[in-house]
């Protein structure tokens, strides 16, 4: 059973009541099915209502949920044959980023993704999905190969941010990210980026320069973590909820701001409730995005991506 969020408390109460009634009717051998049916319908209505009125801070909780599917959950459902390739050829392999080649709906592609762990042990191994420079250099190496062999690049974004320890600084975290940004803006193959969970700042953007940016319904993508924003602005990390609203970082906000191109619906209650269904949504959205780009020449793929970047931002007159 999935863990409950605070805002799901009314659902939990209702579910408990239904379970109680069921048990009572069994024990006492009384038929309560009309009452139970009524409550179950109310449960569905309530869940729909709650999930169509989520606040940005609720989305943060969903996107960061321990049970939220990660790249390795989706890969076998999205690809016919994902072959993982490792290492940056310079220092080591960073498992906060996974990459490789695969067949996507009959087309060879290069795939790169942040990977968060699903439990504490895996999170320590993957540094909570926070890549070091070697992770970004692995991504760059694989994307350069995509350009060489003319394969579309599919990236998946799911990170709280880039690693923030001294080792990352010593090995040039800034330079590693900057090179990804520069190269991604120059490639002449299609690049489709999909935010599947948390998009945290420059560490997320390093995989986020594409022809198309898709976002899962309850994902978010922000310049700064809401907690950090609150502690800088109001010297009070507990105001993260307010910061979450001010930063306008939900999929719906980014669509409105013209940064995201499409939102992929999640099953009611979030992606973790039905991984297979979520993967189907991702798959068809990427397929559609690739189809829209199939008539573009290599030059046009580069030019339109650059034009897109050039238009981001708001300037007054």
């Amino acid at each position: 059973m999935a863990q409950y969020f605070d805002f799901e408390k009314p659902l939990l109460e209702l579910e408990e009541k239904i379970a109680e009634l069921k048990q009572f009717s069994q024990e006492k051998e009384i038929d309560l099915s009309p009452e139970i049916y009524k409550l179950m319908r109310r449960l569905v209505r309530l869940r729909k209502e709650i999930y169509s009125n989520l606040e940005p801070w609720h989305k943060v909780q969903i996107a960061r949920h321990m049970e939220r599917p990660n790249f390795h959950d989706y890969a076998p459902l999205l690809f016919e044959d994902f072959i993982e390739l490792k290492g940056d050829r310079l220092y080591r392999d960073d498992s906060a980023i996974a990459g490789g080649i695969a067949i996507f709906q009959g087309t060879p592609v290069t795939v790169v993704s942040h990977v968060k762990g699903k439990d504490t042990k895996e999170n320590i191994k993957r540094n909570f999905g926070m890549p070091h420079p070697e992770g970004y250099r692995k991504a760059l190496r694989l994307m350069d190969q995509a350009e060489k062999f003319r394969r579309p690049i599919l990236t998946f974004i799911d990170t709280p941010g880039a690693a923030c320890d001294l080792g990352a600084e010593e090995r040039g975290q800034g330079e590693a990210i900057a090179r990804c940004l520069q190269s991604m803006s120059q490639y002449t193959v299609p690049i489709i980026c999909t935010v599947i969970g948390e998009g945290g700042s420059g560490g997320a953007l390093a995989l986020g320069v594409g022809n198309t940016l898709l976002m899962l319904e309850h994902s978010f993508y922000s310049v700064i973590a809401p907690e950090s924003c609150a502690s800088i602005l109001w010297k009070d990390p507990s105001k993260a909820k307010e910061a979450a609203s001010a930063l306008k970082f939900t999929a719906q906000d980014l669509l409105e701001l013209g940064i995201a191109d499409g939102i992929i619906p999640e099953p009611l209650g979030g992606a973790h409730r039905n991984v297979k269904k979520t993967a189907e949504g991702i798959s068809s959205a990427i397929a559609q995005a690739l189809e829209e780009l199939q008539d573009h020449s290599p030059e046009a793929l580069q030019t339109t991506r650059y034009e897109k970047l050039r238009n981001f931002g708001t300037i007054g007159t």
């Binding site: 940004l181 120059q186 306008k248 701001l257 940064i259 970047l309 981001f312 931002g313």
Partner: peptide, 20 residues
Amino acid sequence: MQEGILSLYQMAKTSGALGK
């Protein structure tokens, strides 16, 4: 921070221009 995601993408914009 006050310009949110629009600010973040200025990183990509400037890096893209330097790529050209």
